[in-house]
Write a protein that binds this DNA or RNA. Structure first.
Lengths: 219, 219
DNA sequence: GTCTATATGAAGATAGAC
DNA sequence: GTCTATCTTCATATAGAC
């Protein structure tokens, strides 16, 4: 599989769930901005292009958002909230075994990056364009999610079920392989987002030097 | 370790080897552009800012490059040439064992992303801003490097030393974890770029379901 | 090769009519 | 809420003097 290097990401549709999306025109503006920011980057997309995509004039956007940066801030916040929410939910549903927790985390992490490719590309890749004021919520969510993975790996090492000398590096590697999924995944890919998530969870366990999770042995 | 989300990458210095860098003012322009493109993105950095960093006026840049896009094209080409060169060299120095080859590849891949962080961030992350004309050489190099890793993994599976059901996914995951290194590595990190490369090579072998490379057993 | 001056257009954002 | 018209600044790039 060779990706087109001319495109920043393979996906062509901006996906925002109803729960992410404000109602009415504001939601359409947000979705149009998501697609443009994902494809061209925040700095490479203009207010007028966003407005065009919604079928209005640039000036009309300011009835919905006070600035371009506020649109980016909302997208980044939604992306990181969805990420954190799905991870927290997955962790609540699994037991205390660090292997189960890594599987749950990577499942949620990868599935999110495959299902919401554009949201992930923008929320991860355009963070640097956010001022500390408008990005505060997002930055906090991001740090929490990163710390959670590191904690899981550290606990697995402490319990003797993971075998890595450098916990932070392992967490960084696992996080990285999931993040990249957003750039190549499309619904037309051979495997579903869930299947990709399962393969990557197995990769993560292997990387950590773990055997199959305990749940497999006890069932 | 918590990264500052306000910065696109942790490194603060643009590194270009003498062999990458054109002589004279052209080289200074290229290096200044590298730093700005890495930190703000291609679209987010202006000709005037690049010129300022070199201590000249924007108009003077056009004595060295015909357009902003030509500067990006040269940076992307240099980055992918360095990447490909280091991988090819590493592969020539190792044997025919797919395990050795994965170690050689990941060593080179990760070391390059740690030593030339800004070059990697720009060459990977700003490719989408290149027209197909100016990006042709870079696109070809990139596809070659990706294909090489996939070939190594496939061969290892065929030889029975790797055990993965989805070769492309494994190659994508290994490539991804290395690419991300460019965003967090700095010379102040606890480990040297070589040490990080070695840890990641071990991660890759584990991910592939391989034992330690053959060379370890025969020495 | 670098400068000043400038062409030309596009950027983000606002004012005020409807 | 959306429009037209506009402000102001900045963008890439060129012309031509030195």
């Amino acid at each position: 599989m060779i990706l087109s290097p001319a495109r920043r990401l393979a996906a062509t549709r901006a996906v925002l769930l109803p729960e992410h999306k404000p109602g009415g025109t504001r939601g359409m503006v947000l979705e149009a901005a998501l697609k443009l920011f994902a494809e061209r980057g925040y700095a490479g997309a203009s207010i007028r292009e966003i407005a065009d995509a919604v079928g209005m004039r640039g000036a009309s956007l300011y009835a919905h958002y006070p600035s371009k940066e506020h649109i980016l801030a909302e997208l980044c916040r939604i992306g990181h909230e969805e990420h954190r929410r799905s991870i927290q939910r997955a962790l609540l549903e699994c037991g205390a075994d660090p292997r189960d927790q890594v599987v749950a985390y990577v499942h949620a992490h990868v599935a999110m990056h495959a299902q919401f490719t554009m949201l992930a590309v923008v929320a991860n890749g355009e963070l640097h364009a956010l001022s500390s004021e408008l990005g505060a919520t997002t930055f906090a969510l991001r740090n929490q999610s990163i710390q959670t993975l590191e904690d899981i790996v550290q606990r697995g090492v402490d319990h003797g079920v993971f075998h890595v000398a450098h916990v932070w590096l392992a967490a960084a590697a696992i996080g990285a392989m999931g993040m990249r999924v957003a750039y190549w995944y499309t619904p037309e890919f051979d495997l579903s987002s869930r299947q990709v998530a399962e393969v990557y969870a197995e990769f993560a366990l292997r990387l950590l030097g773990a055997a199959a999770p305990a749940r497999k042995e006890t069932s």
